[in-house]
Simulated assay, not measured.
Amino acid sequence: MAAVFDKPTLRQRIVPVLQGFDGPLAFAVFLLACAGLLTMYSSGFDHGTRFLDHGRNMLLAGTIMFVVAQVPPQRLMSFAVPVYVIGVALLIAVAVFGITKKGAKRWVNVGVVIQPSEILKIAVPLMLAWWFQKREGQLRPLDFVVGGILLAIPVGLIMKQPDLGTSLLVMAAGLAVIFFAGLSWKLVVPPVAAAVVGIVLLVAFEPMLCAEGNRWFILHDYQQQRICTLLDPTKDPLGKGFHIIQGMIAIGSGGIFGKGFMQGTQTHLEFIPERTTDFIFAAFSEEFGLVGNLFLIAAFIFLILRGLAIALEAPTLFSRLLAGAVTMIFFTYAFVNMGMVSGILPVVGVPLPFISYGGTAMVTLGMALGILMSISKSKRLVQS
């Protein structure tokens, strides 16, 4: 009888908790975290406490990942509607009485100052995955229309702030859920083709469209300026084109093997703007060169492929859609950041996951990783 009441050993208590960790996914994050700490030390060692703060943010993200990994997907599904409703309500509050900084109204004071748009990066895929889970087996075209509306509401409110970078991330995560839910290719190909044609026309008619005094009624002035600067940054090399030009110079000057750790001249002579945040990829490229870039890209590809594998093997439709959308968040972060620093996308203020400095973004990434870990754990429990 005494054996029945014996306390479990420390190993017996720890093993079930650690089962929430997917080994390959954790390894990919470890590689990126090491690259981030190295780059942050080099680019931010003389930038106050930036390096120490980055390490603290990583520990915070790791703690959040650990906690979220213990929450089963069924429990996560129960949070979908309330988190989405609260997030949209806070976005409306921002529009009505939000705090304006640097010309953008993105924050609201609810006892503490928060940026509600960050919540929607997770809330939107949660909500859409919940919606399509409820419609499993009886999907109709109208259900995709409702999903589009659920996505359009927060994206529209975020773009109005204006915050193009965050709206792109939220839109990408939402569209991933809608696509993975079974959206027909017949509905996907036409807008993609229209976008390609639009880009070609934009490049071809750039001199006329970006002429002085010409305004695009669809976009804000600053958004139009970013696109025109992307098309021809040399028009204002010391002003709006400075970021792109200096980023490309730093990337090119790194060559194949880079200038070496802490040897980047563009970085340490402060030619690279925002060298610890949005443009940290330029600082990394200068010091580690093409070889370092290939390593970084390979680590992101490994992370994304592992996330998609978890999505593919998930036991429920909700888990599959959520894991796929969360994985696309990492892809969008990395693709947009590297693209804008390299001069192939407009500068929209999107950080590079685990490399760029930023507490809020790190918290979001920690939650996303925790969700993937939770879904991976649920898959193993089902198989056992």
Rank of each mutant, 00 (worst) to 15 (best):
L365I: 09
D163L: 05
A314F: 08
M362F: 04
M340V: 09
V81S: 06
V4M: 15
G198L: 05
L290H: 07
Q161Y: 13
I355Q: 01
V347R: 00
G264P: 01
A194V: 15
I99C: 03
R13N: 14
V189Y: 11
G174K: 02
L76E: 05
C34R: 10
A152G: 10
K235L: 10
A104C: 14
M328S: 12
N57V: 03
G98N: 02
V382R: 13
S285Q: 07
L32S: 02
P141M: 07
V192H: 03
G36C: 11
Q70M: 15
W216H: 01
D163V: 06
S374P: 05
L120Y: 07
M328K: 04
N337I: 14
L164K: 02
V155D: 01
A172C: 11
S285G: 07
F97S: 13
K379M: 05
L202R: 08
I329Y: 00
A298N: 03
A325S: 15
N293V: 12
I119N: 00
G36Q: 01
T49G: 11
S378A: 14
G239S: 06
L76T: 08
P190D: 09
M340T: 09
V71S: 07
A61I: 02
A2G: 13
L151W: 04
V112S: 14
L168N: 06
E118M: 02
I249Q: 04
G239I: 11
W131A: 00
L294T: 10
I251K: 06
G339M: 13
F21W: 09
L139R: 08
L308N: 10
S184V: 10
A334Y: 12
M208Y: 01
F330K: 01
A314V: 12
G198F: 00
G44D: 04
F45P: 01
F279T: 01
P116D: 12
G174N: 13
L321C: 06
E313K: 14
V189A: 13
V113K: 08
L372R: 06
G48I: 10
V4E: 14
V189F: 13
L352R: 02
A129K: 03
I310P: 00
L183Y: 07
F354K: 01
A69M: 03
A368T: 07
T332P: 02
P82Y: 07
V326Y: 02
G254W: 00
I86K: 04
A298H: 10
V110Y: 05
S374N: 09
V200H: 06
F5N: 14
A282C: 09
S117Q: 05
N337W: 11
V108I: 15
L312M: 11
V326F: 13
G241R: 02
L312K: 15
V350S: 04
G103W: 06
E286N: 12
L308P: 11
E206N: 11
G62A: 12
A309W: 13
L290G: 15
V88D: 00
T39V: 12
V94P: 00
F45Q: 13
K240I: 07
E274M: 04
V203Y: 02
I251L: 12
P353M: 15
I114L: 05
F354S: 03
A309G: 12
L187R: 08
P346Y: 06
L372E: 09
L230P: 00
S285T: 08
R306S: 12
Y84F: 15
L187I: 11
I244A: 05
S285H: 08
F300H: 02
V348M: 09
G292F: 10
N293M: 15
A323L: 14
G370T: 03
